[in-house]
Design a protein around this nucleic acid. Structure first.
Lengths: 217, 217
DNA sequence: ATACTCCTCCAATCATCTATGGAGTAGTGT
DNA sequence: ACACTACTCCATAGATGATTGGAGGAGTAT
């Protein structure tokens, strides 16, 4: 006990988690998995990866036990190994955001011009008094895997064609995956150009779940 | 906005934090830094690294802005860039511990036979009623950088020679850096063989600080 | 100035990681 | 049995990271 080799071995075990977080592509995969389970194929396409590359990254995550799998026929569904994995991912992002100035630059470049935002508390208050329509602009399968109670689902790529489904006189609060998801930003810009009063939730489903707020399925 | 290159760039920024956590040696350095600031030389010796290797690892941590530096004469002191870095490090350990079975094995191999433990709440209660001596067995400079109020400082390597300073009839609660620190384990074993009634705090100074409990200096 | 301490930077080597195409495996459908 | 789907495993090349010794820079002491 207390010897250097054993200490190194212990910290190398901790480092398995760090190594799993040490790739932008793997963080993208965790980001997607935080929304719900997915097949390898779906993850590869959503993250812009080759099938074998995605599979290799998922194996890396699996060997660190950050994700678990389930087989259904020929498909294999990956999911996060627990809510604490989502919390860890969120914390990595928060630390990066608070300590690395480049994160703000990269965020602005990805998300585009800032749009008006609404906090979670404000959203809850607005919904309680019936003054706002909550709009989920994520892909349908992510909405199905869990969404804010009472939210309407119109994926961003269908929004242009389904504007009629939205009330013209009520404020719309759009949300998507999380604080760094582009969908709600794009949705608010699209809705605003079509005359709607639209804002976006400051963050998204990731943070909603982590706050232990009710989730509908 | 919304293009793949910008998204990749953003997630690669997040990954800078992950990459910084992707080495057991760097996690050891963070573990030491969580106790207080230190020079490169002191860190290298404490972590069993060559000076240049330690310097290189510290540069990696610095480029991710997880640590900050301060110069005093010819010495350069490294410190954590904030309390959130300690919290992130603790979370990585917690996730590893909860999801990777090998962590338990490596922990047992490093810490040796389990010793009786006391929770933080229990310790606080015992101290309030004056029924226990709290003993800090970390190196003197770590005690100086912050310790549990009322704790007595006897570094582990001096404990054998300073047993007389401890009350023979009162319980002793030893603590050190954190949940994976070997010092308190060794101290309890040493004290027990010398007839003292000794237990150890479940975790240590890292978790004490993260719980926002009072810290004396 | 000169010598000294403490640390960083550089260059070279070796090890590990990433991405990819091709082969192989598990399960489904006919 | 056969073809098919969905995925993993393997081999490989290129990129990135770790470790080391030696040179260099920043600050202090004389």
């Amino acid at each position: 006990m207390g010897d250097t080799a054993a200490k190194t071995a212990l910290f190398d075990q901790f480092a398995r988690v760090g190594k799993a977080l040490a790739s932008g592509k793997r963080l993208e995969l965790l980001d997607l998995l935080a929304q719900g389970e997915r097949t390898v194929d779906a993850l590869a396409r959503a993250a812009g990866l080759g099938l074998t590359t995605a599979s290799a990254h998922l194996q890396t995550l699996k060997q660190a036990n950050l994700v678990a799998t389930r087989r259904d026929g020929t498909k294999i569904y990956y999911r996060l190994a627990g809510a604490d994995i989502a919390a860890l991912y969120a914390m990595v992002r928060a630390v990066a955001s608070d300590h690395i100035p480049d994160v703000g630059i990269a965020r602005a470049a990805y998300l585009g011009p800032d749009t008006d935002e609404v906090t979670r508390d404000e959203l809850l208050a607005r919904v309680r008094e019936g003054g706002a329509t909550v709009l989920d602009v994520r892909p349908a399968e992510e909405y199905a895997a869990g969404h804010i109670p009472g939210a309407l689902s119109i994926p961003l790529d269908e929004l242009q064609d389904r504007l009629a489904e939205l009330p013209a006189d009520q404020e719309i609060v759009a949300y998507c995956r999380g604080a760094y998801c582009v969908l709600a930003h794009d949705a608010v810009r699209l809705l605003t150009t079509h005359g709607h009063h639209a804002r976006r939730l400051t963050d998204g489903m990731l943070e909603w779940r982590l706050s232990d707020l009710p989730v509908a399925t």
